[in-house]
Amino acid sequence: MATTVIAEQPPGRKSLMQRFARGWEPYLYSAPALILIVTVMLVPLVVGISYAFRDVQILNPFSGGFIGLDHFRALAGDRAFLVALKNTVWWTGASVLLQFAFGLILALLLDKPFTGRGLAQALVFLPWAVPTFLTGLNWAWLFNPVIGPLPHWLHALGILSEPNNILSDPELAMWGPIIANVWWGIPFFAITLLAALQAIPRDLYEAASIDGAGPVQRFLSITLPFLAPTIAITILLRTVWISNFADLIVVMTKGGPADRTQIVASYIFTQAFTRLDFGYASAVAMVLLVLLLVYSMLIVVLRQTLLNKD
């Protein structure tokens, strides 16, 4: 009798232990990731928000005090910031639209099998692997009349009256980073859209052609509806991402000439990096964060109303 009890007890205790361990197991697996995210992203985020209401200048040892809404009052009258807001809209809109249009065309071109597709795909996707700082430098060099061909070509085509560097022309400078961004970002859209295209069942197209639908009709009534959710999500996420993407501008123009290419993200970086005014930089960042939140909320509301309509 006694032996059976002893023999049975360990499995019972073990199963309790096991159940306990099982409950904790997912937390153990996620712990390293969570610790990293909380200490390196969440804590600095909260600290950064507190900076927005404090006077934090690295070069000024007496700074650090609480100043309430002073930064935001200064922001409202900061012309450079207002220009940066306007530039952000222009930069994001043009970049996303061009990347999407050229990306969609590329995805459609690569959708059907042809000899050499693998190689063509590898080559056209290559820009995506180029580090962004190098993309920026590379295009800055291409636009430089001393070393690059683009000003001379644009001059020959009659687009520029003189073979000058468009990056130093206040009217045209923004096109420099935008073109670099389009070059770099087309593959992202193409990859995502190509993946979605290849998930469309082929029989649908066959059925449609048997019913006598032409290529345009097939595109409008099969391809586009199938792609629509991917298109919507990719564009929304990309809009947020590109509006925060300051690398190309920092590398190519540093926001100049005369702040004509400064976007809010690069303005934050400039305030922190060159002026070491962390308080003001954080206040600008807060405004950007709020704008992005409003944008995301609008998207969610829009999505809900569209879903309800169906």
């Binding site: 995210i37 985020l45 600290v47 925060n244 934050i268 922190a272 962390f278 954080s282 960042a285």
Partner: peptide
């Protein structure tokens, strides 16, 4: 906590990392 972990990770993908330049330097 799965829902919250996913939400936290999505949040980190949404907010501008450039916001963290100053506080991370200071920390």
């Amino acid at each position: 906590a799965k829902y919250w972990i996913v939400a936290l990770m999505l949040l980190t993908q949404m907010f501008p990392l450039v916001m963290l330049v100053a506080p991370i330097f200071r920390l």
